[in-house]
Nucleic acid binder design. Structure first.
Lengths: 146, 146
DNA sequence: AGAAAATTATTGCACATGCAACGACTTTTC
DNA sequence: GAAAAGTCGTTGCATGTGCAATAATTTTCT
């Protein structure tokens, strides 16, 4: 038969499963953040990174979070406009930008964190004992994927 | 201090880890598909679903794959234009559409599958014994997240 | 030192996306 | 059985995204 397809188990196909699951998790969180705080996903991610690491540049974030340069840049610009983040040119290398949270940014983030934590707690509850195994598997995949 | 942040371990935050990982996996695959076959991610996902389940409707795919109605619809239209997929109105419920692969669609998919399989194999290699544990954890999360 | 190559953040632009509105149809309700 | 409510797929529109091009700087090379 010319229209035979090779066997393929979509339900166990990892890239597919990850995409579906992560889309669900993200959109669930995103809706909350958007509605209550007017923050988009890239903005939230930048906020988080800048909040927990000092003087990050756009490129640093790009690499750590797999967030496109342009996305980071635009998210940073918006956060700056909203008064949550300050951009400062690095004095040693003037191409680089040092990103820092303003007090308002820190305040916002400290409201966002508990929501994130409780979501994590929910996931841990679902996973129970298997939480650690999952984290390990993710460690592996992250480090081994160039 | 007013600018103290609660502790938060970004590196172990699951929604974040999933998003980053799945973005990497997807874009790696997507580039291949796009370059060699001119197929986008939503198109690939629709192709896959239609290929392995008979007479799916747009809504069926939306629910199975967490792919927006409009995305499915547009992907289907493009696949139809390229001759890979046929749309047919369901005779019992004329609101529904039955999607089927054309022979060309089947042929294309049978070229795409091996690429997907070898990617999966690569992941299994990385995960080794832990593959099953990961799949189980994903099962849990998928079913428990309404 | 000075020219060439590389790196950083931004931006313009074409295209993708998400959402609400719509028309076509079906189911429910009275 | 007609009207109201609901469902399905598509589309218009405002917004988001990815990529290539750019200006400003730094690094490398001769």
């Amino acid at each position: 038969m010319s229209d035979a397809l090779p066997d393929f188990d979509l339900e166990r196909y990892l890239p597919y499963r990850f995409v579906v699951l992560s889309a669900r998790l993200s959109s669930k969180l995103a809706k909350q953040y958007k509605k209550e705080f007017g923050i988009s996903i890239p903005e939230w991610r930048v906020l988080l990174n800048v909040g927990y690491t000092k003087d990050l540049s756009v490129r640093d974030i790009e690499q750590r979070v797999s967030l496109e340069r342009s996305k980071v840049s635009r998210a940073a610009t918006k956060l700056e406009a909203k008064g949550y983040l300050a951009k400062q040119v690095d004095s040693r290398d003037k191409r680089l930008l040092k990103l820092t949270l303003t007090p308002e940014g820190t305040e916002l983030l400290s409201k966002l964190i508990p929501i994130a934590e409780s979501f994590q707690a929910e996931l841990n509850q679902i996973l129970g004992e298997d939480t650690e195994a999952l984290q390990l598997a993710l460690d592996r995949l992250m480090t081994e994927m160039d």
